[in-house]
């Protein structure tokens, strides 16, 4: 996975709560057997009407957000299904950071395994970002090393995430390789493991 340290990019605001992974990537696209190419299906039912035409009333279709790489959304983002296709779709579409007041557990975890940075900010801060991002060309910096989010004006916020996940993201580690450094302990555990 690619390391992420500091990211600067265009912000796309999606002001809804409880966005579930069925919305992020609908089930008809889960049949593929590779990790690539899911971006075209991101928010499919919101982005396209039944004839496959882009829906004008869905903001991600506006030209001003074409190059967005930071998604800002409402609370409990990524709830529902465990499908990792959701972060794959976000990433393939070009998103590197997702900011929300809270995330569903499995989705949060899945992001960090794929080099997407999930940032939890207080509700008020998220609201400010939402409003700012309504104007064209609003960009921010997300600094994972110092756990800070800021823009070129006066927006500034700090965030937290578990140290283990921070290190993973900063270094882009292969988690299995890390685990295998403890292989002798796994062997030992198996030797003593109780099976009924």
């Amino acid at each position: 996975m690619e390391p992420i340290r500091v990211h600067e990019g265009l912000v796309y605001p999606l002001n809804r709560s409880n966005i579930d992974t069925d919305q992020i990537i609908p089930k008809q696209f889960l049949k593929r057997i590779s990790r690539q190419g899911f971006g075209q299906f991101l928010f499919f039912n919101w982005r396209f009407n039944n004839d496959g035409e882009p829906r004008e009333d869905f903001s991600l279709n506006k030209p001003q957000y074409k190059d967005a790489s930071i998604l800002v959304a409402g609370e409990n983002f990524g709830c529902g299904s465990s499908r990792e296709h959701a972060p794959w779709a976000l990433q393939d579409f070009g998103f590197k950071v997702v900011i929300a007041p809270s995330f569903a557990d499995i989705f949060y975890n899945n992001c960090t395994k794929n080099g997407i940075l999930p940032v939890v900010l207080p509700e008020e801060k998220v609201q400010v970002l939402m409003e700012n991002a309504e104007t064209s060309g609003y960009r921010i910096h997300v600094d994972l090393e110092n756990k800070r989010v800021y823009d070129s004006n006066d927006f500034e916020a700090s965030f937290d995430l578990p140290e283990y996940q921070r290190e993973m993201l900063l270094n882009g580690w292969d988690e299995i390789a890390v685990t295998l450094t403890h292989e002798s302990k796994i062997d030992q555990f198996e030797d003593q493991r109780q099976v009924f």
Partner: peptide
């Protein structure tokens, strides 16, 4: 508990998982 595909791979390879 439910896990993502990266974790599926991890469990297949190591029979373990990192959990807080």
């Amino acid at each position: 508990f439910g896990i993502g595909t990266s974790e599926v791979e991890h469990v297949l390879a190591t029979q373990t998982i990192w959990q807080a």
